[in-house]
Design a protein around this nucleic acid. Structure first.
Lengths: 221, 221
DNA sequence: TCTAGATTCATACGGTTGTTTGAAACAACT
DNA sequence: AGTTGTTTCAAACAACCGTATGAATCTAGA
């Protein structure tokens, strides 16, 4: 039975424990093939451990998946929020929309410049949004709302007259464009074809910043 | 073996043929549970026919799925393009951006006002974009590019100076927002929570039209 | 009415799935 | 050494999967 956790080796630098190897091995597999498409056997084979390890360390496949998601949700949320507050504090009272938008855009898209790790992350999240396997509202509570909150506060520092509802809608418009870029870049063979070039850096960043800044100002009145 | 198709009943109004019942039954199942998550047995049970019917009428599960997707792709593409050309021809030379944007936004979101059929459609397409089971570029060739083409032409009728590349990027920004709305409205329990109200009609339509029109004009220079 | 082809049906096959089990291996403490 | 509790392992389990098969059923034309 899965017992209470107790560290076996008090403090020693060894190879990662089986539990962590499982999480690390499961993540790219879940991302590439989805929850149902990934077998426990494939995970344990990639982690180099026994089939039963998943049921020993986690209670089963479902619980392992939830842990993979939660781990990533936390990391992404903190990276994005940190980028926002850093930009605002560095810029001080000379902060403007373009700066904030560019900074957030780069923070959002940065993980995907690296082909290997970035794709994994987004595929994982896209799948989870379409077919949730974590408790409902987890995504909303742990990701959307906190980031919304930080961005809204930053925007209203720049535009004090901006209504909260309007601010949230604008943020949705911005995040929608970023998510779209990520989604499109992920499509098979997106580099070729007509629309592949539309999402190349840094052109796409410039476009989103300009488009959104104008949209935002138009939403002020 | 799957033989050459020959209409059995020349002209008669009977209940739908097994082949069509299979397509109709498979669609919501594929949408709700994905390709791998939907069993042939579940499909045939829903269609009220025998398990082997899938292998008889189609060559197997994969081929049935492709037909479901292709059928919907064609319908959506034609609905959207028709909406664009109708708007432009009705407005004549008095067409402006707001009118075009509002018309396209409504055409895009209209299927999702109806809870039942709309969700099915989008879930199906979202899944297919994340985990393609049709030949590569099918989506791009049969959906994205034709709609892009029609919208670009319409936009350049209004703004003759608009560069093609810039036009495409703006269209991506607009479609991104629409897809985001659809995605958010699909999340479990989206009506409750902070951001649920942000996507209510007709507020969200007004916002997208205003935001995008401004972004478009800013992209002109 | 008879025949030929199209369509349905119940059933079976081989393979993969998540989970369970009981024994073996391991580390730490008396 | 001996004991204890944690972790790994090979093997087996029942359930489900997509597909194949051959007989039964049905429809249309001769």
């Amino acid at each position: 039975m899965p017992p209470v956790r107790r560290p076996r080796r008090p403090s020693q630098d060894r190879e990662p424990e089986t539990l962590d190897r499982l999480l690390d091995a499961a993540e790219p597999l879940f991302a590439a093939r989805g929850y149902g498409g990934t077998s426990v056997r494939a995970i344990t084979a990639a982690a180099g451990c026994n089939l039963a390890a998943v049921n020993y360390h986690f209670r089963g496949k479902a619980s392992l998946y939830r842990e993979v998601i939660r781990r990533r949700l936390r990391a992404m949320r903190e990276q994005r929020i940190a980028s926002i507050v850093r930009t605002m504090s560095e810029a001080g009272r000379s902060a403007d929309v373009e700066l904030l938008l560019r900074s957030f855009t780069l923070a959002f898209l940065e993980p995907h410049l690296d082909e290997s790790k970035g794709r994994v992350l987004i595929q994982l999240m896209s799948r989870e949004m379409i077919e949730p396997h974590v408790p409902p509202h987890t995504f909303e509570k742990e990701m959307i709302e906190p980031v919304q909150m930080a961005l809204t506060r930053a925007l209203r520092t720049i535009y004090p007259r901006l209504e909260a509802r309007v601010a949230r809608r604008c943020i949705h418009s911005i995040i929608a464009q970023l998510a779209h870029v990520v989604q499109m870049r992920r499509m098979p063979g997106f580099e070729r074809g007509t629309c592949g070039a539309d999402f190349k850096f840094p052109g796409v960043v410039d476009h989103i910043v300009r488009f959104s800044a104008a949209g935002l100002r138009a939403s002020l009145s």
